[in-house]
Design a protein around this nucleic acid. Structure first.
Length: 834
DNA sequence: TATTCCCCGCCAGGGT
């Protein structure tokens, strides 16, 4: 920072001139959109700014309040850095790690303009003393997380200060949108607006498919002043390319690791200064890291790993290495999708399916992280078919068909938590709070009975927990809801938040260094002495004690790579739709782009042996193998939908054809295998693809109770039925699952109308099974021409499904059926021997 | 014709 910048602006300067001078000092000329944001802000508007990452949105929004303040305090001789103004701006960011970085980038203009503002952050990482100090007097601008905002609302004495807040800015709003964290943020924003009805709300977001939802949920249903949606810098240059396998003919039709591409990827990495290598899974990053090192042993120390199971200290070290340019490449999961400005990264490599166009765009934006720099992404297929996905993603991006983030519908678990939060932070009366809640987009349609139910739930535990004082969390005194018990207040504060972690154990060296965490599930299957790859090292298990797995370095080959559970990322519906169009183009003989040209031979095999379906066709392939009769169906709707569909179809067919099915699915299709030949024409005639009665049939076809119970664990946690204990020292998940099952059973039996039960069933349908997408898929299939082929061999499209099925058996047949069938086979064998 | 399954958050008020 130059000396000139550290001076306060000359008295003669207008605020805008001061800001221009600041921008000039960092070598930028403000973009037109940035000035639009300032104008909107000065005019008292709220708004949402969206564009690709690395295009100056943060500064655009931040400068609004700064300009306004300079204008209101023109007498610069009175700017006294020792007496910073009271709190004025709250900046909310979804990542703890981002809070520090954000603070640094917001600080630059404060110092550059010589403002007397105090800027601080407050997250779970902050020292208790800092929080205590802030509780007495908040800084002029505070960077925090949604959870920490919630926590602040439990401190009554903070509320008075927050009344003086002029602006609240939510960064990376797309990241929170459509999640319970986003809902928690909405509730916090409503509270802040209640404290100061004139509050301006601004959001910063990547471009996404449902900007209207993003805007409305950000500002609430009755915003003060008008609301602008401002498109940021649009000229961000983007270069997407695929690494085409050197020998496409020999490139596997299936598989998801893609190590055949290691030499080509290493060559690419060698050509540039620093690279982010994104993989879809943590185990994949471990495998690729090892293979890259094997390919280039001289890169030891220059390449690193980054994923969510690694210890924080390791991750910070890696992030710093990227920042200062000392690392050549980092193999990571979406742990590096957000945050941390790596201006040094000049290439992003994506290994395997990007799953969605918006995600690909976001990742590409991690390179060339400056408005005038070009983002470069190289896609590395792990199997031949995947090349279609990049072709499809390019089309989706070009057409602006980016994924929408569907909003959640008034989840009552989050609401129950928030109500207790408000009761702690000074209390409320029922009508008053209801009015406030209905100003949020999420709860605008909250009905009176629902509201009564929530109040009843936090006051006396609902109708089934009345006998247990532990669940009488809120007291009512002459119409005012408050929490008096200090222990209960602390317990609530420790459990604020909507993220429910999986069961995991620390992994440590015997000497004490922590490597990270791994799933209980994975570690429990290992025996002492078993070798596995973890945190980029080969280690062997020594023992497990007190929820810690102790390991030592090992040599040789790994026996296994940890498989972390976790969400399954299905292909987005937008990308699926583009993919069906690409296949249709191929069917018409159009092969545009390097990816499609490379796939030409594969597509020709597919059409020779079977058919390449047009987008108004639905392909079913029937093949007989040693394993039995196989039906391959290709909705191209993503894994989650296919899981639901496969169970649904098996259920519907078995209602009128007596057979049992073994099923498997991937992002493209479904395979149903049966010991008997299924009369598919009959099945189609009997409307197995009908969307009628879908929900009932889904619930009957799957173990929906078990799914609901698992979903209920999260709901019970968020709603405050289960305390997970001190942060970082959570109770084991098996313990939490056990108590959550208990609640589930008690409610089912004694309180069947409990709205949290209803919520868990709904979340299973909407979130786990994507039932609305399933509905759309069936609707589309019903309108399509159904093409049934009998290929002579397993086709390129079917092949990976066949392999998946061998690996991952999901059977619809009961144990008894299976035993009977095995028995009859054995009898046949015996007959032959006779 | 090998291997699959992201990420994120979180307490603490009273004496010198």
């Amino acid at each position: 920072m130059t000396l000139a910048m550290l001076q306060t602006p000359p008295q003669s300067e207008t605020p805008l001139q001061s800001v221009d001078r600041y921008f000039a000092s960092i070598g930028w000329k403000p973009f037109r959109f940035q000035r639009s944001v300032w104008r909107a802000y000065a005019g008292g508007s709220s708004g949402l700014v969206h564009s690709a990452t690395g295009t100056g949105k943060t500064l655009a929004v931040w400068m609004g309040p700064i300009l306004k303040w300079i204008k209101e305090n023109p007498d610069r001789s009175k700017w006294n850095p020792k007496r910073p103004p009271p709190v004025r701006v709250l900046w909310i960011t979804p990542l703890r790690a981002l809070a520090g970085d954000t603070e640094a980038s917001l600080r630059a203009p404060i110092e550059g303009l010589g403002l007397p503002w105090l800027l601080e952050s407050r997250t779970g990482d902050s020292k208790a003393s800092a929080k205590a100090r802030q509780n007495k007097r908040l800084p002029t601008a505070l960077v925090t997380t949604p959870e920490s905002l919630s926590l602040m609302l439990t401190h009554e004495r903070l509320l008075d200060q927050l009344r003086g807040l002029e602006a609240v800015i939510v960064d990376e709003w797309h990241e929170l949108l459509g999640t319970k964290r986003g809902i928690q943020t909405e509730l916090g924003l409503a509270r802040l607006r209640k404290l100061n009805p004139q509050l301006r709300t601004w959001g910063v977001s990547a471009t996404l498919g449902n900007l209207d939802d993003a805007r409305e949920s950000l500002v609430g249903v009755d915003p003060v002043g008008d609301v602008r949606v401002i498109q940021g810098y649009t000229k961000k240059r983007l270069k997407l390319e695929s690494l085409i396998p050197a020998n496409m003919e020999r490139f596997p039709w299936t598989g998801h690791i893609g190590t055949k591409m290691v030499p080509q990827v290493a060559e690419l990495i060698a050509k540039v200064k620093s690279v982010l290598v994104f993989a879809n899974t943590r185990s994949q990053t471990e495998i690729w890291y090892q293979h890259l090192l094997k390919q280039r042993p001289d890169w030891a120390g220059e390449i690193a790993l980054h994923h969510g199971s690694l210890d924080t200290s390791v991750r910070r070290w890696v992030e710093n290495g990227l920042r200062d340019g000392s690392l050549r490449a980092v193999v990571c999961t979406s742990s590096l999708d957000l945050g941390v400005d790596f201006t040094a990264v000049d290439l992003v490599i994506q290994i395997g399916s990007p799953k969605g166009a918006a995600r690909l765009l976001q990742r590409a934006g991690r390179s060339g992280h400056q408005p005038d720099a070009e983002s470069r992404l190289a896609f590395v297929p792990t199997n031949a078919i995947e090349l279609i996905e990049l072709a499809a993603a390019q089309d989706a991006i070009r057409k602006g068909h980016l994924e929408a983030r569907p909003l959640l519908r008034k989840p009552l678990d989050v609401l129950a938590q928030h109500v207790v939060t408000i009761a702690i932070g000074g209390g409320f009366t029922a009508d008053e709070l209801l009015q406030e809640l209905r100003t949020t987009y999420a709860y605008q349609s909250l009905s009176d009975p629902e509201w009564q139910w929530v109040l009843d739930f936090v006051v006396r535990g609902g109708s089934s927990l009345e006998a247990y004082p532990d669940f009488h969390r809120v007291n009512v005194h002459s119409g005012r809801y408050i929490v008096e018990d200090r222990r209960r207040i602390t317990a609530h504060r420790m459990n604020i938040g909507t993220i429910v972690s999986d069961a995991s154990m620390k992994v440590k060296f015997l000497k004490g260094k922590t490597l990270g965490t791994a799933e209980e599930h994975f570690l429990s299957k290992l025996n002492p002495g078993d070798r596995f790859l973890f945190a980029g090292r080969l280690v062997s298990l020594v023992r497990v004690r007190d929820n810690v797995a102790y390991v030592r370095r090992a040599t040789g080959e790994p026996d296994s790579v940890p498989r972390w559970m976790g969400g399954r990322m299905p292909l987005s519906s937008e990308l699926s739709a583009e993919l069906r169009l690409k296949i249709e183009q191929a069917a018409a003989g159009k092969f545009v782009g390097r990816e499609m040209k490379a796939l030409r031979r594969l597509f020709e095999i597919q059409s020779r042996w079977s058919v390449l379906p047009r987008s108004d066709q639905f392909l079913i392939e029937r093949i007989e193998t040693r394993g039995g009769h196989q039906l391959f169906l290709f909705p191209f709707e993503g894994r989650l939908v296919h899981e639901g569909l496969s169970a649904l179809l098996a259920y519907r067919i078995s209602r009128f054809q007596k057979t049992t099915f073994t099923m498997a699915c991937n992002d493209y299709g479904i395979v149903l295998q049966s010991p008997h030949r299924v009369d598919i024409d009959d099945a189609i005639a009997r409307k197995i693809f009908s969307a009628d009665d879908l929900v009932n049939d889904i619930l009957n076809s799957m173990n929906s109770t078990e799914m609901a119970k698992r979903q209920f664990r999260q709901i019970a946690r968020v709603a405050g039925l289960i305390q997970q204990g001190f942060p970082g020292r959570g109770k084991s998940t098996s313990h939490i699952q056990a108590s959550s099952n208990l609640f589930y059973d008690v409610f089912s039996q004694y309180d069947p109308d409990n709205l949290l039960l209803e919520q868990s069933r709904r979340e299973v349908l909407e979130l786990q099974l994507e039932s609305s997408r399933m509905f759309d898929a069936l609707d589309r299939i019903e309108r399509s021409e159904i093409v049934v082929t009998e290929p002579p061999k397993v086709t390129p499209l079917s092949f990976s499904l066949l392999v998946d099925k061998l690996r991952d058996r999901v059977s619809s047949e009961t144990l008894a059926d299976r035993i009977r069938r095995l028995q009859s086979q054995l009898e046949k064998e015996a007959d032959k021997e006779d």
